Computed example of a mutant assay.
Amino acid sequence: MDASFPFHSRWLAAGFAWQDTIPEGSVALLLLLNGALEFGWMDGRRQQVGKSQVLWLNCGAGLPLTVNWPNPDGFEALLLQYPAAWVRNSLAALQKEMAPDLSALLLGPHPAHPAVVRALEAEDRAWAHGFMAPTLCSAARQLLEGSRMSEFFFRKVLTEARGEELFCTRTRRLALDRVAKVREALLADLEQPPDLAELARLCGCNPQYLSRTFAEAAGTTISLYLRRLRIERAAELLSSGRMNASEAALEVGYRSLSHFSQAFREEKGSPPSAWLRESASPSLHMTVRGKK
């Protein structure tokens, strides 16, 4: 984001320069989506932050001396930066209600190691992946991202301040967890995926409840979600050139080429052969996708 804007955000890859990335005088939230970081503090203490964790860091109270990446492959993190003065002014009235470690980190007296780690909720992961708005102009994007960053910050802090999850937040989180479990189970065997009863058993609920809550959280039914996963996988196989349409159809569980072609058209807007031609022509592909 522009340097004149009060909030900043950026995606990080392994090997980023820590001291140059996070300036003093800011509060940083680091959402670890994949991979891990290991910090070294001045007194020799080591601290590791792993996948599916959120790191709160008060840069004004000090930064780690060293940062290492135990396994840099696939590292993915979203960094959110907030002005320390904005944080202090925004949270002054909430200090007595906040979790003690978070209150000390953000408002003082600062701890020896100015970092607090929390679990990354499934809702947070979904929020991070939907955060950026690349299609907007620069000014509109800054306004939207600043607003969303503020909303995220207060949602996390107020959940901490209550000492418990709000019921609606917990319900949403559990629903998103079930969506993730269903996705993982389906991707494990697209050719012969588990049926609804087995998916419900994996999610620890009854089939009817899973169907309803999945549709509410994912915005589609499990059967249509399975179709989407199958077609996305088939599209990867086709575009790689490793398989033709018949082979890709069998690979993802379609025994009928006509059924596969119909499903592909409904998901991609074109049958497999036409989609391949469109994919080979970026400008044409963009036009067709825009009409979809």
Rank of each mutant, 00 (worst) to 15 (best):
L202T: 15
A218D: 03
C203P: 06
R227F: 00
Y225R: 06
F214P: 05
P207W: 01
R227P: 02
Y209P: 08
L202R: 15
T220H: 02
Y209M: 15
A218W: 00
F214T: 09
Y209C: 13
I222F: 00
Q208Y: 10
Y225V: 02
G204K: 06
C205D: 05
Y209V: 14
R201K: 14
S223D: 13
C203R: 04
G204L: 02
R212E: 15
R228I: 00
A215R: 14
L226H: 08
Y225N: 02
N206S: 11
A200Q: 03
I222L: 11
S211F: 05
N206M: 06
G219S: 09
A215W: 04
R212S: 14
C203E: 02
R212D: 14
S211H: 09
Y209H: 15
T213C: 10
Y209K: 15
R227W: 00
T220E: 11
L224A: 11
I222N: 00
R201L: 11
A215D: 13
A218V: 00
E216L: 11
P207C: 02
E216M: 11
S223E: 14
G219N: 10
R227Q: 12
L229H: 07
A218Y: 00
L226E: 11
F214M: 13
N206P: 03
I222W: 02
C203A: 08
A217H: 01
Y209G: 13
A218I: 00
A200M: 06
A215S: 14
A217D: 06
L226A: 12
